[in-house]
Design a protein around this nucleic acid. Sequence first.
RNA 1: GGAGGGGUGGCCGAGCGGUCAAUGGCAGCAGACUGUAAAUCUGCCGACGAGAGUCUACGAAAGUUCAAAUCUUUCCCCCUCCA
Length: 390
Amino acid sequence: MYRNFRFDVISVADRARCGILKTSRGEIRTPAFVFCGTKASVKAVTPQQLKEVNTQIILSNTYHLFSYPGAEHIKMLGGLHKFMGWDKPMFTDSGGFQIFSLGYGSVANEIKGKRSGIPKLIKVDERGAVFKSYWDGNTQLLTPEKSIKIQRDLGADFIVSFDECTPYRIEKKRTEESMERSHRWEKRSLDAFEQFNDYSQALYGIVQGGIYADLRKRSAEFVSDNPFFASAIGGTLGATKEQMYEVIEMAMNGLNISRPIHLLGIGGIVDIFKGVALGIDTFDCVHPTRIARHGGALVKSQYRDGSSREHINLKKSTYKNDDSPIELDCNCLTCRSFSRAYLHYLLKANELLALQAITIHNIKFMNALMEEIRSGITQNNLKTISEKWC
RNA sequence: GGAGGGGUGGCCGAGCGGUCAAUGGCAGCAGACUGUAAAUCUGCCGACGAGAGUCUACGAAAGUUCAAAUCUUUCCCCCUCCA
């Protein structure tokens, strides 16, 4: 069923593991970070630049590309890889997360109880989810079958079952009902997938169950018991970091560890170390690229400005006269060429180059981090590595 | 020389007797962002004070009024049109 895909664990340190995820478009060394290029573009950078900083894999989104320009359009133009000029492995997400993000807003706002913007999620029922297109306001129904069809048309290597991503602020009963529905949707995703499987894609199942140990375990077992190529942990991961690590552990308890395991939507440095230690193989997150566009440059602990954050904000006037690069020991194009002072100026002057330059650094940063994590697992010194990065 | 229109907080610009330390916008400062609706959002932004509050403010000066950024007079400066 997945004969063109393979996952081999090559090194293990406690529960952390190093592996190779093989696809017909190349191998991915894990643990790996997947960069979000939601609308068929990793914002502000070119595929060439992504490769220059050792990017292995990126992710696009069903909902967005379905709204515009349409999956069939992209299929007609040769598929998503060709369309966006990326020939390495790629993911597409199913649109399930948009049931949350378009219904509730950002993760932070939802946890803090703040709602923002006009809801673009109209309703969710057994068939699927009815959205308002972000592009033209049309209502559109996304079902598991449709999500798989779209993802098939887009042609990413790894595709994801359609699920309902639940928010944090709902009670257990609703989380359970939603989880059960996600399971039914995932079954339907699998059926739709198997019906047209041409071995060019591998399907992920998603673990739901909110913050409840028994639900997470049940959901993980559901995913493991079904013929998905790999597993992903989704849904709310709780309100605090501590809770997040607990939730990951709950899910891990029921997962088949011979398959690759992806943690959806997580990209903090500490979070990645914690995730890796629990056995996560891949992560995806908008954070590195999004904060870059807001002037946030990821830095190792020695380069921080004293705050507990994992990045420095180059918009701050502190950096106006700072002639050093973002990180002295970084060899990305940005750190080789530009000072913090120049980046500060570019941000203040509203020059697009700032967004690109910082994005390049952050991508390089994440890729270098993952590389060191991999060697940390192989050489069994993950703890030392983590002290340097956290 | 004649006619008219203006001068408001770092900048632009509302307000045209009290509810004005003064709407907005920009800039500035701080914060947020975790399967990207948003290169976005939130807060602060005269001085002193933790705060209640106090003081100084709407070109300058003098007035009218219980009360003036708002009304009157004079002065200074800017812009437009006609000579």
